[in-house]
């Protein structure tokens, strides 16, 4: 192997790390926002209010029917129109990711909440706990254990999906690698390194998900 020069990675490392930081930042914010909004959507969807429930279902199914790259693109143009002022690409992409991930996390929460048998709700109600107390103290702690592996898997997918921000010229890890590869004409070295980074990070996520699901298999 004569032509390969991995020194390019070392020289471009600060630049690549900047991109990686954006990828991590987007993953974290989208996950946090998506989980909170997703929980709300799931609770509304499972509630007795038919009209609200249908709206929530429409939201979830709508977002899940559209590719993320399209959502990112649209929000880049739509958010400034909706707010009546210009927003940065980063702001628009954060909103797009949170709203998009909320649809997926909502489905994970819905399955998690439904995995708790009705007797648990009844037992909590019978003791005088209210709906939100039961949700917070009895149902969610159990549901979260069932859901955590899926939530991590979703986060891994999300981390990979942050590469899509290239469509509005934001520089995540993948885009940074791409720039370096083309600028220094070291495509093989850079893309090998990029693949390795994704592989390591996502493998850690996947491994922790399967470890958790093994440990918390219901008794």
């Amino acid at each position: 192997m004569t032509g390969l020069d991995f020194g390019v990675i070392q020289r471009a490392l600060p630049f690549l790390l900047e991109g990686l930081a954006l990828s991590f930042f987007l993953t974290a914010v989208a996950m946090l926002g998506g989980v909170i909004l997703g929980l709300g959507l799931a609770v509304i969807r499972l509630s007795r209010w038919k009209a609200l429930s249908i709206l929530a279902a429409g939201y979830v199914n709508g977002f899940r029917a559209i590719p993320l790259v399209l959502v990112i693109f649209w929000f880049y143009f739509l958010v400034p129109l909706a707010l009546g002022r210009s927003v940065s690409a980063l702001q628009s992409v954060v909103i797009a990711f949170v709203l998009f991930e909320a649809a997926y996390y909502s489905e994970i929460f819905r399955a998690g909440l439904q995995s708790i048998r009705p007797g648990q709700w009844q037992a909590a109600y019978a003791c005088g706990l209210g709906y939100f107390q039961t949700l917070r103290l009895v149902v969610l702690p159990q549901a979260l254990r069932n859901m955590l592996p899926l939530m991590i898997t979703q986060a891994v997918v999300l981390f990979q999906d942050t590469s899509l921000v290239y469509v509005i010229s934001l520089r995540d890890f993948m885009t940074s690698a791409s720039i370096v590869a083309n600028r220094d004409n070291r495509l093989i070295e850079t893309y090998l390194f990029a693949a390795l980074v994704y592989f390591v990070i996502c493998s850690i996520g996947a491994a922790s998900a399967s470890r958790l699901s093994a440990r918390w298999r219901p008794a």
Binding site: G119, Q120, Q122, A123, A124, Y125, A126, C127, G128, V138, P141, Q142, R145, P218, A219
Partner: peptide, 17 residues
């Protein structure tokens, strides 16, 4: 009212966590 009426279920329904 529920807080003043105790209930015991067929499948116990203790909180497993």
């Amino acid at each position: 009212l529920r807080a003043r009426i105790g209930m015991v279920f067929q499948h116990f329904e203790l909180y497993p966590h």
